[in-house]
Write a protein that binds this DNA or RNA. Structure first.
Length: 156
DNA sequence: GCCAACGTTGGC
DNA sequence: GCCAACGTTGGC
């Protein structure tokens, strides 16, 4: 199994929204970046775990943990002209975009801010921390996952 | 609100 | 296939 970071703008969809969702589960749809798409389609598997990251907000931070609970399938929002994620170039028989379902696992008592993550030298290589990084589905090494988990436990 | 960094588009 | 122009992301 693999570990990930999934980014979301809390004004659009927050971890609280996920916790309150039906079955605490949501389709992780609307991803419109090819690199992120490839991770979703090819690498995200049922039972993978991911940190939920709040971006473009007052304190960008990892705020909790979610679990992948489905395999990848076509992102239906791309077929819907009324959806903000509509993409006329994606058709049901030749889908361009994909999604998985994710389920709420845990919300951290104290979020781990970007600034905090940057204070840990062992996380320097993280894709999330790299300058100019805009990827919304980010792979983590097992070591990075463990390090961040430990930070979350130390700050309880 | 600014702006750096990056991705995408489209003319040639 | 190059690259300029434009659009978007996201931290600050």
């Amino acid at each position: 199994m693999r570990y990930w970071v999934l980014k979301s703008e809390p004004e659009t969809f927050s971890i609280e929204d996920l916790e309150q969702a039906k079955a605490k589960t949501t389709p992780w749809d609307g991803v419109r970046n090819y690199q992120a798409r490839n991770f979703i389609r090819d690498k995200l598997k049922k039972d993978d775990l991911a940190f939920f990251y709040h971006s473009s907000c007052q304190i960008p931070a990892i705020v909790g943990i979610v679990e992948v609970v489905s395999e990848a399938c076509p992102d239906a929002t791309a077929f819907d002209p009324k959806s903000p994620y509509y993409d006329p170039k994606s058709a049901p028989n030749t889908p361009r975009w994909f999604k998985v379902d994710v389920k709420f696992k845990q919300k951290f008592n104290s979020p781990i801010s970007l600034a905090t993550l940057r204070q840990h030298p062992s996380l320097n290589g993280m894709i999330l921390l790299q300058k100019g990084n805009r990827l919304s589905v980010i792979p983590l090494t097992h070591k990075e996952w463990d390090t961040i988990l430990k930070i979350s436990k130390d700050t309880l």
